[in-house]
């Protein structure tokens, strides 16, 4: 197994400054920018497909029926954005661009720094107010459901989106979601322990159970949380026999879904401790 994790040596000065400004602590590892192969493959495939059809239609219009010019024009109009998209992605990718090869996500003890084309920005795990994670099933050795696209809103109003086209999300996505959920859990629990309901998208964690659109699933019926993946990922409450109970919500559209999972587990552990 080969891992693209780089040593702490040779951090760029802007990265060091950004990290120290937010007290991120020690540098742990870095993830280099990746060449967005799926994006290039998709745009390249469409460019070739429509390009061949457009070329054929143009040839047909020249040697045959001039009415085919209409079809040729339409096909060229579809080919052009596909080809431009392919070239745009290729020229900005680390495979071609020397500058893009310098882009990295640097993970520190208390957060991360993303050095990219638009600048270098630092975030702390505990400054993430909302995290939306789109999951994918990776067949690699990293395991099953892993975030491939993450949207973040920080407490200071900054927004960030990081996808599989930027870095290896099978590894960084997993790390990011775990660290953010661990940082958010004490805050959510502290708020809950004061008697407040805590809302995660369409789900609200209350003293009595988990509510979904006014319907409450009591804690006595909840055995845990399950995330299933079909075309998208869905989160459901399950009982102790893993039978679905209550709501099934789109995990990718749910803010702080991982914190919700940890919170339900923490409350269930506490309730089981009391029950014994």
């Amino acid at each position: 197994m080969t891992l693209l994790v780089e040593s702490a040596l040779g951090l760029a000065p802007d990265v060091t400054v950004a990290a120290s400004m937010r007290n991120l602590g020690e540098h742990r590892e870095s993830y280099p920018a990746v060449t967005p192969k799926p994006l290039m493959l998709a745009s390249g495939m469409f460019a070739v497909l429509f390009g061949v059809l457009a070329g054929g239609a143009t040839w047909g219009a020249i040697v045959g029926d001039p009415a085919v010019w209409i079809a040729a024009t339409i096909l060229w109009a579809i080919t052009a954005p596909c080809l431009l998209g392919f070239l745009w992605v290729l020229l900005r990718s680390p495979a071609v661009s020397r500058r893009a090869r310098q882009f990295r996500v640097h993970v520190f003890e208390h957060g991360w720094v993303w050095a990219r084309r638009s600048g270098t920005e630092a975030y702390r795990w505990d400054e993430v107010q909302a995290l939306f994670a789109n999951l994918a099933v990776f067949t690699a050795e990293v395991g099953s459901r892993t975030p491939y696209g993450i949207r973040i809103a920080a407490v200071d109003g900054r927004r960030m989106e990081i996808w599989q086209v930027h870095v290896d999300m099978a590894r960084f996505g997993r790390l990011l979601t775990a660290r953010v959920a661990q940082a958010q859990l004490p805050k959510a629990m502290a708020y809950f322990d004061k008697g407040n309901p805590v809302t995660f998208g369409d789900l609200t964690v209350t003293d009595d159970g988990v509510a979904f659109q006014g319907i409450l699933t009591p804690w006595s019926e909840i055995g845990g949380v399950e995330i299933d993946h079909t075309d998208q990922s869905y989160l459901s409450l399950v009982d102790r026999q893993y039978r679905r109970r209550g709501a099934r919500v789109n995990f990718g559209l749910m803010a702080n879904g991982y914190t919700f999972v940890l919170m339900v587990e923490a409350i269930l552990t506490k309730l089981r401790g009391v029950g014994q």
Binding site: Q129, A130, R151, Y191, N196, T199, L253
Partner: peptide, 20 residues
């Protein structure tokens, strides 16, 4: 619409993020 829903969720999270 999706962005509006996201915004509502971000604001809802602010309540417990601030309190914690």
């Amino acid at each position: 619409r999706e962005n509006k829903k996201d915004q509502a969720q971000i604001e809802a999270a602010a309540a417990w993020m601030r309190a914690g």
